[in-house]
């Protein structure tokens, strides 16, 4: 028994956070300013996570986006239980917390007048992890693009495959890429936008398969985790390792585009699609 009990005042009176700490430059930014700047640090241009809803507002012409496949939700098919409890409890809690029922929102809408199908991943939901329902939605949105002959755009922010679904989550890599393969065969453009972070099985499947790969500044993009690699090679990795800038240098992304410029960049690229 402890003699003194620490009183957790914060828990009793939840306050709205006034300040946001930038993950890159560590500076404290007034929350309102952070939000007005689209969750981008005004100091160092680090692009923080943005909700799928905010991304939709930012990218699509006003009221043009219609959500599709929101009926697809996860199921705990392996009855997976880890130290923190059942997977089912985890995704239900995530749904309550984030207000969305999967790590991706799918639908179609117009970007500067160009009709596209889109999938927008959301890091708030289980770290944007790729599970069966996530894969199903991403495939369906690809198929929607296929059937309607319209470009497909995926925004990724994800820690990778969702471990709690075992190999079923691994197979989502093959499932989603199957959708991309069909688009390739029909010459339908597929644009992949990689936000912070895009790692593991998501990078090693649809996120790297864009006809055009676009990254947001300073996003961490890679396959294996930084710590795993450091353990393997027994030395520290350079600071810019697995950043958008590093990938641009090594030839894996076409361009690094600021969030505020994404909409115009995408519509400009698609204006070259002559079919």
């Amino acid at each position: 028994m402890a003699w003194f009990k620490k009183v957790d005042t914060e828990k009793k009176t939840p306050r709205k956070t006034l300040w946001v700490k930038c993950k890159k430059c560590q500076s404290h930014i007034f929350a309102k300013e952070w939000a007005e700047n689209l969750n981008v640090c005004p100091n160092c241009n680090f692009h923080g996570n943005i909700s799928s809803a905010d991304r939709i507002k930012l990218l699509f012409d006003k009221n043009s986006f219609s959500e599709l496949y929101s009926n697809i939700e996860p199921v705990d098919s392996l009855k997976f239980v880890d130290l923190k409890g059942p997977y089912k409890d985890k995704f239900e809690a995530n749904k309550k917390k984030s207000g969305i029922s999967e790590a991706v929102i799918t639908g179609h809408g117009k970007i500067n007048g160009i009709h596209v199908s889109a999938a927008l991943m959301d890091f708030r939901y289980l770290g944007g992890s790729l599970g069966s329902a996530t894969g199903e939605k991403i495939l369906r949105a690809a198929n929607y693009a296929y059937e309607n002959n319209i470009p497909y755009i995926v925004f990724s922010e994800s820690g990778g495959a969702r471990m709690q679904e075992g190999v079923l989550s691994l197979m989502q890599m093959a499932k989603t890429c199957n959708g991309i393969a069909r688009l390739n065969k029909k010459n339908i453009p597929y644009i992949s936008v990689l936000a912070n972070p895009t790692t593991g099985g998501v990078t090693a499947s649809y996120a790297m398969m864009g006809d055009i790969n676009i990254a947001e500044p300073f996003s961490v993009i890679g396959f294996a985790g930084r710590r795993v690699i450091e353990q393997t090679i027994g030395e520290k990795l350079p600071d810019d390792f697995q950043t958008a800038e590093y990938l641009l240098k090594h030839g894996f992304v076409d361009s690094i585009v600021n969030r505020k410029d994404l909409k115009d960049y995408i519509s400009n690229v698609l204006s070259f699609y002559n079919r």
Partner: peptide, 26 residues
């Protein structure tokens, strides 16, 4: 697993796997 090393990342470990998965569908 695929090799988790620096040179593998540098040369596009993720891209090479993604490409194979996509191409094997065709």
């Amino acid at each position: 697993g695929a090799f988790p090393g620096m040179e593998a990342e540098e040369r596009g470990q993720a891209e090479s796997i993604a490409k194979n998965i996509t191409e094997m569908a065709k």
